[in-house]
Amino acid sequence: MSVIPHIADFAHDLTEIRQDLHRHPEIGFEEVRTSAIVAEKLTSYGIEVHRGIGKTGVIGVLKGSLGPGRTIGLRADMDALPMEERTNLSYSSQNPGRFHGCGHDGHTTILLGAARYLAETRQFAGTVIFIFQPGEEGCGGARAMLADGLFERFPCDEIYALHNSPQDDPYRIGIKPGPAMAGADFFDLRIKGRGSHGAHPETSRDPIIVATALVQALQTVISRNISPLKQAVLSVTQIHSGTAYNIVPEEAVVSGTVRFMDRDVNELVRARMRSIAAGIAASFEVEIEVDIRNVFDVLINTEELVEGYLAAARDVVGEENVYVKGNPVMGSEDFADMLHACPGVYCTVGHAGNVPVHNPGFVLDDGILPVGASLFARIVERRGAIT
């Protein structure tokens, strides 16, 4: 492995930054402290800073010393998850109900590491745009930055991002060309029934009974309406209803997510969900309000740029630790929306540990920090001079 020596020299500083961010996690569009630290660090590196893009987003702009060239965007997400931490780390979250359980503290630190190195060396052509994005965890942070004119104000020829992966061997880098991650909808199905005393359910229109029927019926959409050769997931993840032991409630809400790799499949799933809801509502003489909203697009890596990112990865971790993924994953990532506006590539970087992300016991391996920073730096040095 060939982590850039200059980055290796300040790896300890990166660990301190990452653990401080971990100790003070902030969820989507609340990244006030985090964005202030990012802005302060970039300014101290001599990088031009712009704040407030997409609410709490931060942009850094840096020109190289090797003349004109391409403008390369590097993006990291900053937000934590609304969950409790159960790691017992010495630097565990001090904010109740907030936890960097997906590694975004690491992503932010990695980009800061690349920014410091590139600012101190400037041995690249063209310009680099450092994009620190808020609200990736289903909050629409990428779309908020795009709506604020991200690429109109800071045009990029190419953009790159990464994500830590405890599922992969340490520091192994993988890329799936083309469609790589699923698009996603979130849904809320609100059942409006009629409440009653728990001892007299015959006078009710019990929304809990309706909810159980609805959940069962929704599970037939993928298994009986979608070709087994297509990829789609429908998961009910929340059911909310009731306030007391002896009250049949008025309402129940069934919520969850749909994942898809194909827009036509997505439209079919949406249509079937609405049809099932209407049929069950008629059967039980209740009302069901259907709210299905898109939160992530399908992430599509620009195939002609994949080899350049793989070459940068080989510089850092060696040929044996770089691979092309054969299959997409059904997880989602809102960097997809940026890739629909600008060509680019998203990769995963493995690290030590076997607890998955979004688990209360997830621990990020700080060894990934100089690896990721070196990868970002190398893609700028490699691609900036290409015209």
Rank of each mutant, 00 (worst) to 15 (best):
L364M: 15
G361L: 12
Q219M: 09
D206W: 11
E320W: 05
C156M: 03
A8G: 14
F362L: 09
M273Q: 13
G97C: 13
G361A: 12
A142C: 07
A352K: 15
I280Q: 06
E158I: 03
T237W: 13
E30L: 08
S165Y: 00
L369P: 01
G135C: 13
I226H: 14
N359L: 06
P370L: 05
V290C: 07
A11H: 09
A115C: 11
R293D: 08
A211T: 07
F284W: 15
I17P: 05
P356G: 11
D365T: 09
P249W: 04
V32P: 00
K63T: 09
V290K: 10
S65K: 15
T121A: 06
G113S: 07
I247K: 12
I368P: 00
I379F: 10
N301R: 06
L310A: 02
P155F: 11
F29G: 04
E333H: 02
D334Y: 02
T302G: 09
V128F: 04
F376Q: 08
E31M: 05
Q123P: 01
A80F: 02
V371D: 00
G318L: 07
N321A: 04
K176R: 14
Y171H: 15
V363W: 04
F187Q: 12
V355A: 13
Y309R: 11
V248T: 05
L162Y: 02
I27S: 01
V265E: 10
I175H: 07
A311D: 15
A213P: 00
V357E: 00
N327L: 10
D264M: 10
P328W: 11
L21C: 03
L42D: 03
V254C: 10
N359T: 05
R224C: 03
S90N: 10
D262T: 10
E320I: 00
T34L: 02
A282N: 12
F335L: 09
I7S: 04
N359Q: 12
V269I: 15
S44R: 14
I386D: 13
T257G: 08
E307G: 04
G140R: 09
I276Q: 15
G138I: 13
I368L: 14
A373F: 06
L364E: 01
R86K: 14
V317G: 02
F187S: 11
F296A: 00
I175A: 09
D297H: 14
T387N: 15
L375D: 00
P5Y: 03
K230I: 03
L146V: 09
V329R: 09
T127I: 02
R70M: 07
G28T: 00
E333Q: 03
M145N: 08
R382N: 14
Y323M: 10
R274W: 08
V38R: 01
L364A: 10
T257V: 11
S90Y: 08
F186R: 11
L66T: 02
P207I: 07
R70C: 06
G149T: 03
G149R: 04
A312R: 05
R274G: 12
T56D: 04
M338Y: 13
R383D: 02
S93R: 07
V317P: 01
S44Q: 13
V49M: 10
G384R: 01
A182L: 11
S92G: 06
V3F: 06
H240Q: 14
L118S: 05
